[in-house]
Design a protein around this nucleic acid. Sequence first.
DNA 1: TCCGGATATGCGCTTAAGCGCATAAATGGC
DNA 2: GCCATTTATGCGCTTAAGCGCATATCCGGA
Lengths: 97, 97
Amino acid sequence: MAITQILSALSEPTRLAAMQIIWDGGEHCVCELMDRLNATQSRMSRHMGVLKAARLVIDRRDAQWVRYRRNPDLPQSAARIVDAVIAATAVEGKVAA
Amino acid sequence: MAITQILSALSEPTRLAAMQIIWDGGEHCVCELMDRLNATQSRMSRHMGVLKAARLVIDRRDAQWVRYRRNPDLPQSAARIVDAVIAATAVEGKVAA
DNA sequence: TCCGGATATGCGCTTAAGCGCATAAATGGC
DNA sequence: GCCATTTATGCGCTTAAGCGCATATCCGGA
């Protein structure tokens, strides 16, 4: 079931675009993702919640910010899916934001 | 956009299970998939339509049967996604049918 | 031409996804 | 303690997904 949940999480354009940003390994607050992806606050927050529920990312409180980053404990088999997806977005050009 | 469509197509358990079967490279009629996946006829037919719309599979009329197989012209970047997904299902055990 | 098997599709229904809006909750600074 | 900033969440709405049922369509064989 976890796999279908991962695929479903990645299948939404804004979430996929967020994963492209987050997959660099760094930390990114919701406000940054909002700005870069042109999303409202509640929309962005909920999308991040979906990615978190799929265990693709983890979050960390840092003062008034919440920093998201890729889940370092993601099983390799799942990480390979994300890698392949990110690579494919690079090939096909851009993903809607 | 094609990538999110592929991910969405793969994110449904019965469709994912169908892809596991079809990814062997052989041809499979709807009736076979129905039987193996415990799906009704209309349900299976529609699911295959979704996979076809995502260009993951192609179909061919053969007498009263329609044979589905993996799309040989699927871009490599997309094929890698499917490969990673199939590999992950093998790791995690089984996918609901 | 008629029939039976295999597949697709129109229709209506139910449920889930995604959204905006308003509001709550957490935190630092004053 | 109070306020501004950042993030999460309850609520209601709209739309899309998935399903079963019935029916249409396609095909070979008698």
